[in-house]
Computed example of a mutant assay.
Amino acid sequence: MKKFIQTLPKVELHLHIEGTLEPELMFELAARNQISIPFSSVSEVKAAYNFHNLQSFLDIYFQGANVLINEQDFFDLTWAYLLRCKNDHVMHTEIMFDPQAHTQRGISFDTVVNGIHRALIQGMQELGITSRLIMCFLRHLDESAAFETLQQAQKHKDKIIAVGLDSSEIGHPAAKFERVFDQVIKDGFLTVAHAGEEGPASNIHEALALLNITRIDHGVRCSEDPQLIKKLAEKRIPLTVCPLSNTKLKVFEAMEDHNIVDLLRQGVCVTINSDDPAYFGGYMTDNFLAVSNAHPMSKAEIAQFTFNAIEASFISRDAKIRLNIVIETYLEVAQQH
C-alpha cells in the first residue's frame, strides 16, 4: 500500500505557500535579505514547531514570513514547493497566499503575486504541474483591510482564480466579511473559506450561508451535526481536509481519532491536503500515508480522495476528465497486482 500511495497521482487544494517555508530556506533568505530571525539553527526552528493550538502556530508562521522580501524570494519559495509536488506525484495544485501578511510589512502586492505566478508558470512548463492561485484575507484583520486587498487584486485577475478566508477562526465570524465576499463574487472570483477547524459546525453553516462559498477549507467539525454531513454529501460541497495539520494543532489528539475516512464512507467529498507542510511535518504523500496507516482502506478508497479533489478543483471540465482518466488507469493497473 505504501508504494501505491507514493506513486498515486494527487491533487492538492489546500496549501498555504507561506507554510511551505522550510527552515533551510528561511535561513537562506534571511541571510540574502539581511533579516534578523529569532533562531540560531535549523534544529532550533524545528523545535519551535511544537504547537498546542492554531494561534501558537500563527505566531511562528508570521515570523517566518518576514524573510520574504523580493519577487525572487516568492519565486524561490513557490518553486521549492513545486519540486516537492513533483516528488509526490501531484498533478495539479491550488495554492493559497496571504498578501496582507506581506503588504502590512511594506512589501507590494505586485511583488508577492508576480513571484508566485512566475514559479507556477515555470512549474507548468518544466514539471507539467498545473495550478490555480487563491488569494486569502486574514480574518483577524478588519473588513476595510480586506476591501483594500481586494482592490489591489483587481489588476491580477488573470492570475487569481478565487478568494478565501484564513487565519484565526475563533472570534472572527463569517459575518464580518459578508459584504466583502458579496463584492468578491460580483468581481468574478470563486470563493472558499476556512471553517469548522477550531470553530464549531455552526461556523460551516454560516460560511456557506453568508459567504456563498463553493468549498470548505477544513470543515472537520461537521461531525457535530449529522444534518450538516447529510447536506455536504448530497450537495457535494467539498471539504479540503488537512490531516497532519489537524493532529499537530490538536483538532484531533491522534490520527486514529480523525474523522476523514468516516466522512469519506458517508459520501462527503473530502480531500487530503497538506496545509502548511513545513510546519506540520508532511507534504501530500506524508498526509496520505498518515491517514492510511491509522485507518486501513482499500486502494479504491484511497484513490477516491484524488477523484474527490479533481471534482472539487477549479479547473475546466475537460481538464477534470483528463485527470480522472489518469487515476482510473492507475487504479486499474494497481488492482491487478
Rank of each mutant, 00 (worst) to 15 (best):
G123L: 00
T149A: 12
I134S: 02
D142L: 06
V113P: 11
R132E: 15
T130H: 05
I129S: 00
L133V: 03
A146K: 02
N114M: 13
I116G: 05
E126S: 02
V113K: 09
E126A: 01
Q125F: 03
D142T: 02
G115Y: 08
G128M: 11
H140M: 14
Q152K: 11
L133I: 08
L120A: 06
R139E: 15
I121C: 13
F137C: 07
I129D: 01
A145C: 08
E143H: 05
R132K: 11
I121F: 07
V112F: 11
L127A: 00
R139C: 14
H117P: 03
I134A: 02
G123A: 00
E148G: 02
T130M: 05
L150R: 03
F147S: 09
L150A: 06
Q154V: 08
M124R: 01
Q151T: 12
A146Q: 06
F137E: 09
Q151R: 11
E148M: 03
Q125C: 08
V113H: 10
G115E: 14
Q154T: 10
I129P: 00
V113C: 11
M135G: 03
V112D: 12
N114E: 15
L127F: 05
V113Y: 13
V113G: 04
E148P: 00
C136D: 13
E148K: 04
Q122N: 08
H117V: 02
Q125K: 06
C136W: 03
M135V: 02
I116Y: 10
Q154C: 12
R132D: 14
T149W: 14
I134D: 06
G123H: 00
T149V: 09
L120N: 05
Q152W: 13
R118E: 15
T130C: 04
L150D: 14
R118P: 14
S131C: 09
S144P: 05
Q122V: 01
Q154W: 09
L120T: 05
G128E: 13
S131D: 10
Q122Y: 03
A153V: 12
G123E: 01
F137T: 03
S144W: 03
Q125G: 04
I121N: 10
H140E: 15
F147R: 03
E143V: 04
G123I: 00
E148F: 05
I121V: 13
I134Y: 01
L120C: 11
Q154D: 15
I129A: 00
Q151D: 14
C136S: 11
L120W: 04
V112Q: 10
